[in-house]
């Protein structure tokens, strides 16, 4: 391979041979990587830049008429009182599913990390919902949450509770979607934490135990810091996935009632494809994109510093 340094004293014949080889490599590269890179350019990069452009237009999807209005769509979005509520809903949903998912997932992982009989089955069962369609999961949970005939009404009844108006009254619809999101993601979080827990060297724990550290101290001082990189990874992936969550909201509430479960992602869909305001929808998509980039950047900057890498 061409990792050998190209000597300037090389005879001209060898230099042209290298040239030929370089061109042949470029040809092979284009053949192998070209199709994938071309698809990325056409269907990911092109629309990304086009989306910025669309966001400056007063334009409806399917219409030939478009008027350039600069930052008009953004001005409209920032002045719309609905926007603050959508951002609050998005934030609430994201924080609740990320924090809740990580807390419950870690607890589950700690339980699964003990050599208990049957833990393999529990692990399989908890992970299963993660591979299911969000639309399907939404449907089956709607049936369970149904305040008249639902399974949950029965279970709450056993506990002496009555079923809250899950579908009709704030804040229950959002809580319902948060619960279902947690149900779907917890097995994934637990499994990733479990892999991390099993990578904690036993001699480190033993040494700490010999020094008289109790289980809680060992967990706080040794296990938790070593889980840092994994926590960091989960924080980013779960946040990004929450901000882009769509299927569950689509199938369970359609963003309703009265827009109380409408997140930014859902607003892109509503504006772009239900109302058909392509320009305004693109502006919302761009705002969401910027938020995603900022979240990633902040997490990289602030969290990574405190993360312990082995």
């Amino acid at each position: 391979m061409s990792s050998h340094a190209l000597s300037s004293a090389a005879p001209p014949g060898r230099r042209t041979a290298r040239r030929k080889k370089l061109w042949r490599n470029i040809g092979v590269f284009a053949l192998l990587a070209g199709p994938n890179l071309a698809l990325l350019l056409i269907f990911t990069y092109r629309p990304m830049f086009l989306s910025f452009y669309y966001s400056m237009l007063n334009w409806n999807i399917g219409s030939d008429f478009a008027q350039f209005i600069g930052f008009g769509n953004y001005v409209e979005w920032f002045n719309d009182p609905e926007s603050a509520r959508i951002v609050a809903t998005t934030l609430l949903y994201t924080v609740a599913t990320v924090a809740g998912g990580m807390a419950i997932g870690l607890a589950l992982a700690l339980a699964l990390n003990r050599k208990l009989f049957g833990r393999g089955i529990v692990r399989t069962v908890t992970f299963a919902p993660y591979v299911l369609s969000g639309i399907a999961v939404g449907f089956l949970w709607m049936y369970i949450f149904n305040p008249n005939i639902g399974l949950l009404r029965t279970v709450l009844g056993w506990l002496g509770l009555s079923s809250p108006p899950w579908f009709t009254q704030q804040p229950w619809p959002l809580i319902m979607i948060i619960i279902v999101t947690l149900w779907k993601h917890i097995g994934y979080v637990a499994l990733i934490y479990l892999a991390g827990l099993q990578a904690v060297p036993q001699d480190l724990r033993d040494a700490a135990a010999l020094d008289g550290a109790g289980t809680w101290r060992v967990f706080r001082a040794i296990v938790l810091p070593l889980l840092g990189p994994i926590t960091f990874f989960l924080l980013i992936t779960l946040t990004l996935s929450a901000l882009q969550s769509f299927d569950l909201i689509r199938s369970m509430t359609n963003g309703g009632p009265l827009g109380s479960t409408k997140t930014l992602m859902y607003q892109v869909y509503v504006e772009g494809f239900q109302i058909g305001r392509g320009g305004y929808g693109s502006a919302v998509a761009t705002i969401l994109f910027v938020i995603l980039l900022v979240v990633t950047a902040i997490q990289m900057k602030f969290v990574e510093r405190r993360v312990h890498y082995q």
Partner: peptide, 24 residues
């Protein structure tokens, strides 16, 4: 550069591409 091109797409969310791709 080609690798960066691939890597950065992991940060580009699907929803920003969906309206322009639909138009196309």
């Amino acid at each position: 550069l080609a690798f960066m091109l691939v890597l950065f797409t992991l940060l580009i969310p699907g929803q920003i591409t969906i309206i322009p791709n639909y138009v196309l």
